[in-house]
């Protein structure tokens, strides 16, 4: 698993990347009430909005760390947004993206580096 400074995680299998937000992010956001997911087929560049996570009092954009085409979105979150609080780094993935440039992933943090980064905040 790879991590970004914006508290996203990316798990890569072959050329497919699964993206979600970290335990830390889910905790900071509080009770998640809605996730606006990307449409399948959307082509992303790094920095594009991948999803919007809403709590009662805030809406936060999740920016894509990678380039590629969205091939699946986790529709299960629509009826059960609390999954983001319960299992952010597993069941609550947001989207699967067909990677356009695998090198973008290698530049990201591993878990140890991310933990160290969290300590520094």
């Amino acid at each position: 698993m790879h991590f970004t400074k914006d508290h996203e995680w990316i798990a890569v299998e072959g050329d497919i990347a699964t993206v979600g937000i970290t335990n830390y992010a889910a905790e900071q956001l509080g009770d998640v009430v809605f996730v606006e997911l990307p449409e399948v087929g959307k082509v992303l560049k790094p920095g594009d909005s991948l999803a919007v996570v809403e709590s009662v009092k805030a809406a936060s954009d999740v920016y894509s760390p990678i380039s590629g085409e969205v091939i699946a979105a986790n529709d299960g979150l629509t009826g059960n947004p609390e999954t983001v609080n319960q299992a952010p780094e597993s069941l609550a993935w947001f989207a699967r993206v067909k990677l356009a440039n695998a090198a973008e992933v290698t530049g990201l943090m591993d878990r140890a580096a991310y933990e160290a980064y969290l300590q520094s905040l």
């Binding site: 009770d31 009430v33 809605f34 809403e54 009662v56 947004p81 609390e82």
Partner: peptide
């Protein structure tokens, strides 16, 4: 008493 705004929004 305080109302559950999370449930209302979910």
């Amino acid at each position: 008493r305080r109302l559950d705004e999370t449930q209302a929004a979910r």
